[in-house]
Amino acid sequence: MSTTITDERTALSDRAVATLRTATPTLWGLLVTALLGVLAGRLPDELYATVERVLDSDVLLLLVVTLVVTAWYWLWRRLEDHVPLWLVRLVLGSARTPSYAPVTADGTAVITSVAAGAGYEVAEVSDAKTEVADLLGTDYGGYDDPPRVDSIEAADRIVERLIATGWRPTG
């Protein structure tokens, strides 16, 4: 397979990729189910009667569609590394799988990076610094009287030191 270079301006977001990779197999599942309904007329009479009962029942029809969609997705996920990218896009909606942030057992997102653009910091770090500054407040100042640093600067130093030792803020 060839390597594709994606321009950041035209790249799909993880949300868009996830939506495509959900909707496309669903549409294929509906199409395959409809095709099975059309082909049912060519089955032997006894088998056709069974298929007709299934297709006439809303609950059973939904079950069949769900099973076809699941089988479609499972099959193509197994084949996706062995077929051309255009085919993967056709059958799954995107050749890229979305990436999801890791979560803890209770569903809390795990922050794996506190990197931000130059001159900025991620919201979790900024919030942590604000909380530390609020705790320091005027009661503690910069730990001495008169304080040599204000509470905001002290909070910045404390949180930066925590980050350097491996601490990561949580939401």
Results as ranks from 00 to 15, higher is better:
108 T>I: 07
120 Y>Q: 11
96 R>E: 13
84 P>H: 03
90 L>V: 02
104 T>C: 01
60 L>R: 14
65 V>T: 11
118 A>V: 12
61 L>P: 11
98 P>L: 02
95 A>L: 15
90 L>Q: 05
128 A>H: 02
72 W>S: 01
67 L>W: 14
95 A>C: 15
85 L>S: 14
136 L>A: 12
151 S>N: 13
135 L>P: 07
116 A>C: 01
79 L>M: 12
72 W>M: 02
133 A>Q: 10
59 V>P: 04
68 V>A: 04
67 L>T: 06
131 E>T: 06
116 A>W: 04
108 T>V: 15
116 A>N: 09
103 V>M: 09
69 V>F: 00
57 S>L: 09
113 S>L: 12
82 H>K: 07
70 T>V: 05
114 V>M: 15
87 L>R: 00
138 T>H: 09
119 G>H: 01
83 V>K: 04
145 D>S: 14
142 G>Q: 02
101 A>F: 13
63 L>V: 08
141 G>I: 08
108 T>Y: 14
137 G>V: 10
78 R>F: 05
126 S>G: 08
139 D>V: 10
114 V>R: 05
131 E>C: 08
141 G>M: 09
65 V>Q: 09
105 A>L: 05
74 W>I: 10
127 D>I: 11
90 L>T: 06
67 L>H: 09
94 S>L: 11
57 S>H: 14
133 A>Y: 02
102 P>R: 11
125 V>A: 06
65 V>Y: 07
90 L>F: 13
143 Y>D: 10
106 D>W: 06
115 A>F: 09
59 V>K: 11
64 V>Y: 01
113 S>R: 06
128 A>M: 01
136 L>E: 03
147 P>G: 00
58 D>Q: 15
112 T>A: 04
65 V>D: 05
97 T>W: 02
123 A>Q: 12
92 L>P: 00
64 V>F: 03
136 L>Q: 07
126 S>I: 00
130 T>Q: 07
98 P>Q: 15
72 W>R: 10
63 L>D: 04
87 L>K: 00
126 S>D: 05
76 W>A: 00
60 L>S: 03
135 L>K: 07
98 P>Y: 03
103 V>D: 04
104 T>K: 03
124 E>H: 05
96 R>K: 13
63 L>C: 01
152 I>E: 10
